Simulated scan of single mutants.
Amino acid sequence: MTTAPRPRRSVLYMPGSNQRALDKAASLPVDALILDLEDSVAPDAKADARGRVAAAAASGAYGYREVTIRVNAPGTPWHADDLRAAAQAGPDAVVVPKVDSPDTVRRIVAALEAAGAPDRTAVWAMIETPEAMFEARAIAAASARLTVLVMGTNDLAKELRAEHVPGRAPLLTALSLALLAARVTGKVVLDGVYNDVRDLPGFEAETLQARQLGFDGKTLIHPGQLEACNRIFAPDATEVDRSRRVIAAFEEATSQGRGVATVDGRMIENLHVEQAHRVLALSEAIAGR
């Protein structure tokens, strides 16, 4: 039976320098939080934000929500101190920007372990450069601690000199490479952010595209995007009902010595049954929240 991963439909960035935002996050209907020390924090506020984020991550205040810390990128003046503080806070994961190679992953893992990170603290690698796209499979396979690939679509578009357009044609090759890397290595992959928080129809269209492509969830920059993201990435009632009928029909066929069945006029094989089990497991995990 195929088991569902932990739900990561919605993954919301929260500015680490804003205590009010960190407090509010504990009441939001979000699957995972990224407490941010990078882009949302000014250079002169990073040291203060580091302590605030580490305390929040260690507080246990966020309930079922997966709590991660995004550190500053390798090579920046804050990276090493961020990693040490994150390791000691022991979040569910440490999110690392600008991961371009498997060697970068191994160095990050070694630094976290040297700083005392608990076994449960995973690494989420942001892949957001052309080099990272070509190295995506090796990055994903570099360590068992690395469990999630996160698309940095804004930085990637900048590096490609691409425009942000509906349908994201300039980014589809990179999105597909990341998906392939995640699936071949058994890792989770999250789509990048949608920048216009006022454009909910555009956000819904891009989120639906991400689900159709195969992403496990999407990173977000505003709580107003949560409802649509959670809805789109969750199996709906029709999908759940069909999954149950697929499993039942295949079990009946198997009991009669047949390897295929038919549901709604379509042939059902074992691969469809595996997907049906995954849909039901994901639906149950979401309902349990």
Rank of each mutant, 00 (worst) to 15 (best):
T3A: 15
P5C: 10
R6G: 05
R6F: 01
S10L: 10
Y13G: 12
Y13Q: 10
P15N: 14
P15R: 12
S17Q: 13
A21L: 15
A21E: 15
D23C: 06
D23I: 11
K24N: 14
A26G: 08
A26V: 02
L28V: 14
V30S: 02
V30P: 12
V30M: 13
D31G: 06
A32K: 10
L33M: 03
L35T: 07
D36I: 02
E38W: 14
P43V: 03
P43W: 06
D44C: 08
K46N: 13
A49G: 03
G51P: 07
V53C: 07
A55P: 03
A55K: 14
A57Q: 03
G63K: 03
Y64P: 06
R65Q: 05
E66M: 15
R70L: 11
N72T: 13
T76V: 03
P77D: 11
H79Q: 01
H79S: 06
A80Q: 08
L83F: 12
A86K: 11
A87I: 08
A87W: 13
Q88G: 10
Q88N: 09
P91A: 11
D92E: 13
A93I: 08
P102H: 12
P102I: 13
D103G: 14
T104W: 07
R106C: 05
R107E: 15
R107K: 15
A110C: 06
A115D: 15
G116C: 08
P118Q: 00
D119M: 07
M126F: 07
I127D: 05
P130T: 11
P130Y: 07
A132Q: 01
A136L: 03
A136V: 01
I139L: 11
A140F: 06
A144D: 15
V148K: 08
N154I: 11
L156Y: 05
L160K: 01
R161N: 08
A162C: 04
A162Y: 10
G167F: 05
A169S: 02
L171T: 10
L172H: 05
T173M: 07
T173V: 03
T173G: 09
A174E: 13
A174V: 08
L175G: 09
A181D: 03
G186V: 02
Y194H: 11
N195L: 07
L200C: 01
G202N: 08
G202S: 01
T207K: 08
L208P: 01
R211I: 01
L213D: 00
I221S: 06
I221K: 02
E227Y: 13
A228V: 02
A228K: 05
C229P: 14
I232Y: 07
E239W: 00
D241R: 02
S243D: 00
S243K: 14
R244P: 04
A249R: 00
A249Q: 00
E252H: 10
T254A: 10
S255D: 12
Q256G: 11
R258E: 10
V260I: 04
T262A: 03
T262D: 07
R266W: 05
R266Y: 04
E269Y: 00
L271N: 12
H272M: 04
H272N: 04
E284P: 00
A285S: 09
I286T: 03
G288D: 02
